[in-house]
Amino acid sequence: MKGLHKYLLVTRTSIRSNLAYTADFIAGSFFFVLVIFIFMQLWQAISISDGSTEGYTVNRLVWYYITAEIVVLSKSSVFRSMNEEIRGGGVAYKLNKPYSFVMYQLSDGIGQIIVKLIINAPLGLLLGYLYVGGLEGFRWESLPAVILSVVLGILLNFFMDAFIGMTAFWTEDNSAFYWIAQKLSFIFGLLMPLEFLPGVIKNIAVLLPFSYIAYAPARLLTSFSVGTMLDILPVQLFYTALFAVLSQMLYLSGAKKLNINGG
């Protein structure tokens, strides 16, 4: 119980600490509203000719995009903080404490994510409702699966960032890896639904983990069926678990290799 209590307290402390960044929140909210507005206009222009694109109406596209943005913009800064701590030597304070380093980072990250979700989720829902009204064909029974998918998408995003962040144990500059992963996540899900991609690329994208960050929950919300749910959730769960395990393995290996700077 004490073991779990320490991580809950890390999350609580992280929430309190992140609430100190009021200016960041306001700026982030402006950005969120702006990108949602731009994409809503964009998809409306694209879909206007026949009223739908690849089965997506403007209403569904807007709700797809809002869900995807909520997941992506609610990410933690785990990549940046790991980079700074490993390179700057601050990791020394983290390594000699009685906790799991990865669990500590996760608990801290969840604190950041909760604070961002508190802002982004209501704002996104309000924007969508004001612009296109409620989601067409929305089924309340889909909500638990959608919420689970959003949580898994956020966790997958976290563990992928943590995995890349931990390469700082080996590399002088790992920002290129992070940049590539971000762009792939953007193309495979955030920019547009995978159904809009050419056949071969779509088939490849469905196999990649990047699609299970934003595409998976957004698709599940806008095209819910038991079949879709069974296609998406197990793969999402698999990739989240895989990157969690890989992060822990990379940490254990990196901590042994660490040659940290001193005073």
Binding site: R87, G88, F169, W170, E172, K257, N259, I260, N261, G262
Partner: peptide, 10 residues
């Protein structure tokens, strides 16, 4: 002296 890993003594 440097800041991080791989050959950064003290």
């Amino acid at each position: 002296k440097s800041s991080q890993q791989e050959g950064k003594p003290e």
